[in-house]
């Protein structure tokens, strides 16, 4: 290498490339696994999904470009809009779990010695396999022999077929979804709670504010950054719901399935049952856009209600 002829400009160029920096070679070696992993597992699938969404992709064999054909088909597809509506309803139900998590997190925080026990109890569903959760709830919801209807019957209430009747399925999923996400939300909120200065509460009680008042005027405002974070995560997670349907409705002839599909279930069905991967990819891209819009809107709105100290 002709090392002595480096002009400043050249040096600058090479530095920008970052290779001649001392130790840069090692840096490359060390970040390579992460970069390769990220590229192979996220970037490449995303790009190939994006490309496929403009193609007609048969189960096997070469794909052909069809322009925006998949997207126009999708926007005119009654099934897609139904799935979209189901996902939106499910997301709305899951959001009801956020205030619930705030209240419970605050209560658990005050539980004193039993705190650890409560945390474990609420966190267990989070670390349980969603498939196992789905199976258990399928039994709980069983119209004839389920636990829920047995309990309802004690109070003289005639139970329904919660996961075999399309009028109830999304709500039934919502209850399970809230139950599953409560634990993780409470952990995040609990961390936020611990950052609330204790002297604020002392000052408030000296001024005569009761527990409830303290909750609404100290805890909630100071917790808004955590609440915001939890809300963002909940919306994204809810829009991606798939496993519960897959486990709870895939009977031999579940008649509620047709009316209970979510966007991701529709994606699965198009791409892996009907072998229409182009259409499936378009569904996935539309979902990505929906999630991006939902998140952007929340970031815009947070200026009005999130309080950063």
């Amino acid at each position: 290498m002709t090392s002595t002829t480096t002009t400043p400009a050249r040096r600058l160029g090479r530095r920008r490339a970052g290779v001649s920096e001392p130790g840069a070679g090692w840096a490359l070696v060390f970040i390579a696994p992460a970069v390769i992993g990220l590229a192979a597992l996220y970037l490449w699938p995303f790009l190939s999904t994006f490309v496929k969404s403009f193609q007609d992709v048969p189960a096997f064999g070469p794909a052909t470009f069809v322009g925006a054909g998949n997207y126009t088909a999708l926007l005119g597809d009654e099934e897609f809009w139904k799935a979209f509506g189901n996902s939106a309803l499910y997301t709305a139900i899951i959001l009801l779990g956020v205030p619930l998590a705030v209240v419970l997190a605050a209560l658990v925080e005050q539980a004193g010695r039993g705190r650890a026990v409560y945390r474990v109890l609420f966190f267990l569903p989070v670390v349980t396999l969603p498939v196992a959760v789905g199976m258990v709830w399928r039994f709980i919801y069983n119209g004839d022999f389920g636990l829920l209807n047995t309990v309802l019957a004690w109070f003289g209430v005639h139970g329904q077929f919660w996961v075999a009747d399309a009028r109830f399925t999304i709500y039934a999923f919502g209850v399970v979804g809230i139950w599953m996400s409560l634990g993780i939300n409470m952990i995040i909120l609990g961390a936020g709670l611990q950052a609330v200065p204790k002297d604020l509460y002392e000052a408030a009680s000296l001024d005569g504010a009761g527990r409830v008042r303290q909750f609404f005027h100290i805890t909630v405002p100071l917790l808004t950054p955590s609440i915001f974070f939890v809300t963002i995560l909940s919306v994204i997670g809810a829009l991606q719901m798939f496993d519960l349907i897959f486990v709870m409705l895939r009977g031999v002839n579940n008649t509620a399935l047709a009316d209970s599909k979510t966007i991701v279930y529709l994606f699965y069905e198009k791409a892996f049952v009907q072998f229409d991967q182009g259409y499936g990819a378009a569904v996935a891209i539309v979902l990505l856009i929906v999630i991006m819009i939902a998140t952007a809107v929340q970031f815009r709105l947070q200026r009005r209600w999130v309080f950063y100290g």
């Binding site: 399928r138 919801y141 069983n142 119209g143 004839d144 022999f145 389920g146 077929f161 996961v163 075999a164 009747d165 009977g251 031999v252 002839n253 579940n254 008649t255 509620a256």
Partner: peptide, 10 residues
């Protein structure tokens, strides 16, 4: 009924 058979397979 169909609903019963959806919940509990035949």
């Amino acid at each position: 009924t169909l609903k019963q058979l959806s919940d509990t397979e035949a």
